[in-house]
């Protein structure tokens, strides 16, 4: 499957600017693609999470593009990069180095294709960084990863350690269950954006997305 991925990916996605960062052209599963309305069992991919530009990831990418100074000359790790938009936005904001990381090898392949589409270059990694010290990075991007309590608590403990180690932690989230009031009280809200209609259509129930910075303990 891995070697056929590119042709499958190109067949089942379409270039799109209909999201919060229209300056990025991203290949995504859009309403123009047959997959959009397919049943889960008809999808050639088990979990094509990289085929969507998640609302949390849209928020961090939008914020980076609007505030390029915070990224300039810094080294950035995009954890759970998915389609790669956060990493590409960081590269376009003149980050010194960018690593797009996802434990799904298809996600980093999608990221490479999308980076090329935007005439940028990012490094990729499928290593599981969660829990690691991340010495080589200044900025950590977390787009839409606070899904459930169990994972959120592991993620949050790790991010707090990184923050104590002077790293800037940017969290994008549309209001998921794991980003509880208690956790938000340890963060600073940087921006809130209204989601475009097409993003709403693929994220039933969500209308806004936000960017938070984790406070240093």
């Amino acid at each position: 499957m891995l070697h056929q991925f590119t042709s499958h990916f190109l067949r089942h996605t379409a270039p799109s600017r209909r999201h919060l960062t229209p300056e990025l052209l991203l290949r995504l599963v859009t309403p123009a693609c047959a997959l959009w309305a397919a049943r889960a069992e008809d999808s050639p991919f088990a979990d094509p999470y990289w085929g969507f530009y998640w609302p949390g990831g849209q928020a961090t990418a939008r914020y980076i593009l609007d505030n390029a100074a915070i990224i300039k000359n810094r080294s950035v790790l995009d954890v759970g990069c998915g389609c790669g938009a956060g990493a590409i936005a960081a590269a376009m904001s003149n980050a010194r180095t960018v690593v797009a990381n996802d434990i799904d090898p298809f996600a980093v392949m999608a990221t490479n294709i999308n980076a090329e589409l935007n005439k940028t270059k990012v490094e990729t990694s499928t290593e599981d960084y969660i829990g690691k010290s991340c010495d080589d990075f200044d900025v950590i991007l977390i787009g839409d990863m606070f899904y459930d309590e169990e994972f959120a608590s592991i993620l949050f403990a790790w991010l707090n350690r990184l923050s104590a180690d002077n790293k800037m932690i940017l969290i994008g989230d549309p209001g998921r269950h794991g980003l509880t009031e208690g956790r938000r009280s340890q963060m600073t809200l940087l921006a809130s954006y209204e989601l475009p209609q097409e993003t709403r259509d693929e994220n039933n129930g969500f209308t806004h997305t936000t960017v938070w910075q984790l406070n240093k303990l």
Binding site: V29, L35, W36, A37, A38, R39, A40, S43, D47, P48, Y49, G51, F52, W54, Y147, D148, E149, H177, G178, D201, E202, N203, N204
Partner: peptide, 16 residues
């Protein structure tokens, strides 16, 4: 009621 499209079905797998 709306029809649940594939993007929504996929993302629902991540909900608690």
């Amino acid at each position: 009621p709306r029809y649940a499209t594939l993007p929504n079905i996929m993302k629902a797998k991540k909900k608690p």
